[in-house]
Simulated assay, not measured.
Amino acid sequence: MVKIGNIELSEFPLLLAPMEDVSDPPFRAVCKENGADLMYTEFVSSEGLIRDAAKSVQKLDIFEYERPVGIQLFGSDVETMGSCAEIASRVNPDLIDINYGCPVKNVACRGAGAALLQDVPKMVKMTESVIKSTHLPVTVKTRLGWDDNTKNIQEVAERLQDIGIKALSIHGRTRVQMYKGAADWSLIAKVKENPRITIPIFGNGDVDTPEKALEYKNTYGVDGIMIGRATIGNPWIFNEIKHYLKTGEKLPPPTMEQRVDVCRRHLEFSIRWKGPVAGVFEMRRHYTNYFKGLEHFKPYRMRLVEAPTFDELDSILKEISNDYSEMVC
């Protein structure tokens, strides 16, 4: 069993990575139903939260059925991050996570996210500030380093563990790599093998099949795996991996009926969270992912994007299930 503070997870937990504009409560709901062990909110801007910006505040929404769930914060100011950890703790998540890994320009070039990999002393101060501002376990997600010449993840892991973080998730790329090239898990393994490291180490990057999950588990010895992009339109990947790790056999791919059912559940959660208008609108970006690869699907996609109500969308989804009933994906 893997423990993060007082949070007990499975023997080899599968985590849903925090993803902007993806890992909102409706998406987290369908991932939870399909086997995710621990999930994180979209990353919340500390500057936005301290200003009480509506978008940042809404990202604090969590629900009982999601637990355990962590709120992820990012920012560039040490004191502000501490204050935001205190604010986030009030909504009673299971943990607080700090983003030291986001590589996108408007985050990293403002001194937040992966930018802190260039200033480890400041990263340590910021982490201390967050830890002192909450009663909850604090975890961190980061990358190998800023670039190939500064892969400092082993130093980062030791120093953050020493001040009290309870788990560390490592994406196997540098900030300069963004999401290009193959993720390098060898340095993640070195962190895990370090006799000084006692906290759980989760690997992240390029795990998109049950076979790869088993290979990485056996090769790199991590305590669990965090999955991001491979979950988009594919939340059942968690149960597929769990079944494969347990039995060595692959589950059959989802039928079209199963694919439609999960999409409908996602839509229902979206409407429940955002209301009948915004909930329908927010769901539009997901249809292409749920039905990727279907021949002659464009007319259906256009109808899904244009339909204004749940009833109309439900009717279209039933048509899709019937018309593609013989197909597995």
Rank of each mutant, 00 (worst) to 15 (best):
E33Y: 10
A189L: 09
V138G: 01
C329G: 09
D261N: 15
I62M: 06
L136R: 03
H135M: 03
F281I: 10
M327L: 13
S325G: 02
I320V: 15
P18C: 07
R110E: 07
S45M: 11
D311I: 09
L116F: 08
M283V: 07
E20N: 12
K217F: 01
M19L: 15
L313N: 01
I225A: 00
P235A: 08
G164F: 02
V176P: 00
D184C: 04
V30L: 13
G172T: 06
I199Q: 05
R259Y: 06
A108S: 14
P137I: 00
T198F: 01
K242W: 03
T231N: 12
T134V: 04
T219C: 07
K151Y: 06
G181S: 09
V69L: 11
T288M: 09
N6P: 06
A183K: 08
G82V: 12
I201G: 00
I316W: 02
A88V: 05
P195F: 06
A36C: 15
I227S: 10
L60T: 09
V91N: 04
M256A: 08
V91R: 04
Y65W: 13
I153D: 01
I188H: 00
G172S: 03
S89T: 13
D261C: 05
E42V: 09
Y290L: 10
V30D: 00
A54H: 12
E193N: 15
Q154I: 14
L60H: 08
E8S: 13
A189D: 09
S270E: 02
I98L: 15
R264L: 14
D61F: 07
N6Q: 15
C109G: 08
E211A: 12
R229Q: 13
L73M: 11
R51F: 11
P276L: 06
W185N: 03
E312M: 12
A182S: 11
Y300D: 10
N239H: 13
S83P: 00
L60G: 07
D21W: 14
Y244D: 01
E66A: 06
D148Q: 13
K151M: 15
D311M: 07
V69M: 08
V2R: 02
P25Q: 12
V176I: 10
H135E: 13
V104S: 09
G233A: 09
L160G: 04
E158V: 15
S321D: 02
K132V: 01
D323S: 13
D162Y: 01
D94S: 14
D119N: 15
R265W: 09
G224Q: 04
E42D: 08
G164N: 08
M327W: 07
M123N: 01
L245F: 02
G48F: 08
T142C: 10
R143G: 03
P235D: 03
Q161I: 04
Y290H: 08
M126R: 03
K180E: 14
G82N: 09
L73A: 05
R196N: 14
E155F: 10
K298C: 02
H266T: 08
L313D: 03
L49Y: 01
A108T: 07
E33S: 14
S23C: 13
L49E: 00
Y40K: 13
P210V: 05
P13G: 03
K122Y: 02
I201W: 00
Y179G: 05
T41P: 11
I7P: 09
M226P: 10
N34Q: 14
I232P: 07
C31E: 02
